[in-house]
Amino acid sequence: MTAFLALVGRDLRLALRQGSTLGTTLGFYLIVVAILPLGLGPDLNLLARIAPGVLWVALLLSALLSMERIFQIDLEDGTLEVLALGPLPLELIAMAKGIAHWLTTGIPLALTAPLLGLLLNLDLAAYGPLAATTLAGTPAVSFIGTIGAALTLGINRGGLLLSLIVLPLYVPVLIFAVSAVTNAVTGPAPFLPPFLILLALTLASVVLAPVAAAAALRLHLQ
């Protein structure tokens, strides 16, 4: 457990002291959300209607930016091999990496989403549900991302491939998160069922994704 927490703490410190990745990610999120009304027209009713979906899609795209680096740097400087030799099984290493990615990318993005809702005339009733779904859904985003990051490790231009592989896997998360928000605002279906399914997706990905990611990492370390 101490080794696990130490690993999470190390990744957090690295992310904090580097700093630039988070700024880039949030800036990208802002720009994607800001550029959409320019393409769609300034109709506030239309923007309010599509705001939850736009915020979620842009969040997924922004989260992809830093995903490639989840294992990349550690593989390049040999840290990953040292970690693999240590007491932690690779599954837990992958899980720690997923948690660290969520803490450094997922939570900031989740907290930015309601702010960016202001740009899109998001319905007042949607702020709470939007924050709830982004907070509940971003762990699934990070953890499913660890699978893609582990699979495309050490590959030239792995980031492009990563998005091709990972984005289809995000379909369930996106659908249930957005339908929870839309339900909360317009009804008629209640907010809770899709939200609970979103939580289930998150929990399942937290448990299952590290297994797949570790299997891929093991191949890279052979």
């Binding site: 289809p168 369930p172 339908s179």
Partner: peptide, 20 residues
């Protein structure tokens, strides 16, 4: 590995798309 991951997630995608 990706194929196995896809096998796990395909039914979920199918279910979610039906829901959507």
């Amino acid at each position: 590995i990706l194929a196995i991951v896809g096998t796990v997630i395909l039914p979920i995608i199918k279910f979610s798309v039906d829901w959507w």
